[in-house]
Design a protein around this nucleic acid. Structure first.
Lengths: 343, 343
DNA sequence: TTGTAAGCGTTATCAA
DNA sequence: TTGATAACGCTTACAA
């Protein structure tokens, strides 16, 4: 019933190896037989058996995707499905399939990886990590198995990774605020210890510098964490130094706190930009402008980098940086900016 | 470097076929050799090569998942990721892997299916359809390839499918409202032509009947579609017949319209239940109580049904019905019910 | 209870 | 430019 390579060979009057060569576009094969074989394949609706091919080549054309241990409602965040979509689309366009696993804990995660690797289902692994994925990374690095991490690992080592461009995200957002008329923007970040916070602050400062605005330390604040409450406190601290005409934050939750503090201080119409483009930002009032980290691009980048790597093609880079997109909503509407801004 | 079945055989001093038999728990094998082989496998960290196994058995232990053509922001809806999670967890627990594809259009969808089937990557296919998936279903049915549809197909034919329990969802919701003190609940549905609407109305009526409440036709309304605007109109029609003390709807968007109409009629505190547990319902004010269709259970059910089918185990059923869950939020808070309800 | 040997459908090496 | 033939690693009659 199912048609194999020998069926095609018989039909075309050649040997199986010739058919195989035609399939792989082997240059040293006469155009004539090429055509004959192609016709036969067409006629018989021949599709190569991927398992046999994989066995013979010892490579599958599959990538394994490990999703994080999310007991809670982590998946409420569209990040994951969008990242999966990016991964899927990129992989498809390059002839790869994706196998995925949802883990419940780190133990399981490693188990899935082991299974993928040792039963030889996949040629490489994509780690879609919500946290530091130590055990998985360690396991993969131990075995020298190709993998890529979405999100820059604290200790990258030899790992491939893809992350968004934190510096430019905030640089661009700040620039936009200045374009709109802001002359005294503030920065409300998370803990200064995190490199993402510092990267983003650098983006903020760079924008001020280039646009010739004063870089006032009083207008820069950090929180102890990324929570709404800390966002409020940070904003209050900033307000005690003066009232900014726009605020850039490093997380939507911080932004929610900032909005609240501004409201309480009677400055409820100051422009605010969040980060991560959460759902709440979409639905609350006022709707929150936010930097979208472009999860689809992140996923596509990861898949592409990994495929380049396992194929041994492309530049030998070990990471990619993905552009972000500022999603504009009510909190950066033009009417939130001082009228002096109008040209 | 990589250890094969013959390595294990050599180590255990038996033949490869014996090892294979031990792996598959063949009954007619001495306990002694079984132990010896198991030890050897352990010691060598042996894991069978899935490709070779699949080739020999002509079955892979993989299922293909086809996601709908969603150019837009369909994936904003947590339904998909949750369904994927259910599918993944169920498949994993039964030793199956999932391969997925995102399609951009029906053409592509069929292409992926063809690829999965003919290159023999998968043993069965799960269709996670947002619409009537005619071409895919037709293609699969034509070839007699095992597949399951999430969501009841209009014309199921011989297809396997999994759907949620529309009758009980509304039956239970109505019962809850009555428990809370409602004595005159209303029903605001979508088009009566849809079987889901009728199933849900039956659930509503059954609850009234069993609880001895009057089934007043004036308290039942249908809309021309599932939109917010139609929800408002439907509610206005109901209000012209009298004021209910609670409203069950068949969609969150209808519920949003209902809430608006109630508000306009000065009955803004009447309890309301939506359906499908959309994100907007979570974040708007008041937060909307809604029937969650339990996408994870739907996914798990689909995977389970398909696996049973391809394995030829389990009862020979062609569908499964999955329970829903009522997510309670502000629109069914106790204070929305008449105090006479207190016992 | 265990071993031998013939597939499963490709690819790759070596001759021709 | 093409064809045998031996892997690839496992399963499964068929024998023993």
């Amino acid at each position: 019933m199912r048609v194999t390579i020998s069926d095609v060979a018989r039909e075309a009057g050649v040997s199986a190896s010739t058919v195989s060569r035609v399939i792989h576009d082997n240059p040293r094969i006469s155009t004539e037989t090429k055509v004959r074989v192609r016709d036969a394949m067409e006629q018989l609706h021949y599709v190569p058996n991927a398992l046999a091919r994989g066995l013979a080549r010892s490579s599958t054309g599959n990538l394994g995707l490990i999703l994080p241990n999310s007991s809670d409602n982590l998946f409420m965040n569209p990040f994951f499905i969008e990242a999966m979509r990016g991964i899927g689309v990129e992989a498809q366009s390059r002839g790869y399939n994706i196998m995925f696993s949802f883990s419940n804990n780190e133990e399981e995660e490693v188990g899935f990886i082991r299974n993928y690797i040792h039963s030889r289902w996949v040629d490489g692994i994509i780690l879609l990590a919500s946290r530091e994925n130590d055990r998985c990374m360690a396991y993969l690095q131990d075995r020298g198995f190709p993998f890529v991490v979405v999100g820059r690992p604290e200790d990258a080592g030899s790992a491939l990774w893809v992350d968004n461009d934190n510096f430019h995200a905030v640089y661009n957002a700040t620039n936009l605020l200045i374009d709109r008329g802001s002359r005294c923007p503030a920065f409300a970040g998370g803990p200064e210890a995190f490199s993402v916070t510092r990267d983003r602050l650098n983006g903020f400062r760079q924008a001020l510098r280039i646009r010739g605005l004063r870089d006032d330390d009083g207008m820069v604040g950090f929180g102890a964490d990324f929570s709404e409450a800390e966002g409020s406190r940070t904003m209050e601290r900033i307000l005690s130094a003066g009232t900014p005409d726009a605020v850039v934050t490093t997380d939507d939750h911080i932004a929610f706190g900032v909005l609240e503090a501004l409201e309480n201080a009677g400055a409820g119409t100051v422009a605010v930009v969040g980060f991560n483009n959460t759902l709440r930002g979409r639905y609350q009032r006022p709707t929150l402008s936010s930097v979208d980290v472009n999860p689809a691009a992140l996923g596509a980048g990861a898949a592409g980098l990994l495929i380049d790597h396992v194929r041994g093609v492309g530049e030998p880079v070990d990471h990619r940086i993905v552009d972000t997109v500022l999603i504009e909503r009510e909190t950066t509407a033009p009417e939130r900016f001082p009228p002096s801004a109008e040209r």
